[in-house]
Simulated scan of single mutants.
Amino acid sequence: MSASTSSAYVVRAIRADEWEDVKRLRLVALRDPAAYIAFLESYEEALARPDSFYQERAAGSAEEAGAARQFIAEAADGTWVGSVTVLIEEAGSTDWAGFPVEQRQGHVVGVFVRPEHRGNGLLGALFDAGIGWARERGAERIRLLVHEENARAQAAYRKAGFVPSGVLVPFDKNAAETEVEFVLDR
């Protein structure tokens, strides 16, 4: 997987030996004010996970033939400032919420950009890397789920070419809340 470079960032897939950076960025993301509606775990839950969890996550994402890939944006000083993970969901299976998967698709999860790096096109570069990887693996459809009240994320996803599909999914933490499925419209 090649890396995409701009003057300020390098967007690339993570390597297996970068598990500590994966953990560090995840903990930063879970401190974001919208984390409670953006992620399916809390800061405390992520902090309590053993290092082996992050080691396995990084190793799995770095496997060339794996079903998931995490992409990060690295600033010129080496700081990881954003991340997108894409999961391949196979036709004929069911997704994490029990919905049938009708065609091979990429499911975008774990979207995060540090606040001081938002609004400059970085999210688009992360999406391009993840979507490109999914398409290379035969994904016919690209989707993501966003909490119904996360207007900031919905606006960013629309700007990147995603549109609501009409599918609503109960939010794992509270069945009274829902997530909206967005699909790539390009």
Rank of each mutant, 00 (worst) to 15 (best):
V11R: 01
T94E: 04
G92D: 12
W133I: 04
S83Q: 03
H147S: 03
E149T: 10
F99L: 11
Y157A: 08
T79K: 06
K159M: 00
A76I: 05
V183G: 05
R143K: 11
Q105D: 00
G78W: 05
D32C: 14
I72Q: 03
A134H: 09
Y9H: 14
W19R: 08
P164N: 09
P164G: 09
A68L: 12
F127W: 00
A129C: 12
Y36V: 04
K173H: 09
Y157S: 08
R118H: 03
V22C: 01
A97L: 02
A16N: 10
S93Q: 04
E44Y: 06
A46E: 03
G82H: 06
Y9T: 12
V109N: 00
L184F: 09
V163G: 06
F53I: 01
F99C: 06
L47Y: 03
H107I: 01
E41S: 14
G130P: 10
G60V: 01
A67C: 07
A175N: 10
E177I: 13
P100Y: 11
F71N: 00
E148R: 10
R31P: 09
V183E: 14
G60S: 11
R137Q: 08
S2G: 13
Y43C: 12
D95Q: 03
R24K: 06
T178I: 09
H117Q: 04
R143N: 09
N174E: 15
V81P: 00
T178H: 14
G66L: 05
A175R: 13
L25D: 00
V180W: 01
A134Q: 03
G78C: 12
A13I: 04
A67S: 12
K23T: 10
W133Q: 02
L184T: 02
P33V: 12
A29P: 06
F39M: 15
E74G: 11
V167C: 07
G78Q: 07
A155F: 08
L126M: 01
E102N: 15
V163K: 11
G66S: 08
N150G: 05
V167R: 15
V28C: 09
E56Y: 04
A151G: 08
R137A: 02
T178Q: 13
A75E: 04
A65H: 09
A65V: 03
E177C: 04
R186P: 14
A29T: 07
R57W: 06
K23C: 13
A67E: 08
L184H: 03
K23A: 15
L144N: 12
L145C: 02
D185K: 06
A129Y: 11
A48P: 02
E89M: 10
V113K: 13
E181R: 09
V169D: 05
A155I: 02
V169S: 03
N174Q: 11
G98F: 15
E181L: 10
A91N: 06
Y157N: 08
I142S: 01
N120H: 12
S6E: 05
D172G: 08
R137V: 00
E56Q: 08
E140H: 09
E136S: 13
L40M: 03
I142D: 00
E18L: 10
F99A: 04
G130I: 03
L30I: 10
P115Y: 06
G124C: 02
E74K: 09
A16V: 01
E116R: 13
E116L: 13
W80K: 06
E136D: 14
L184R: 07
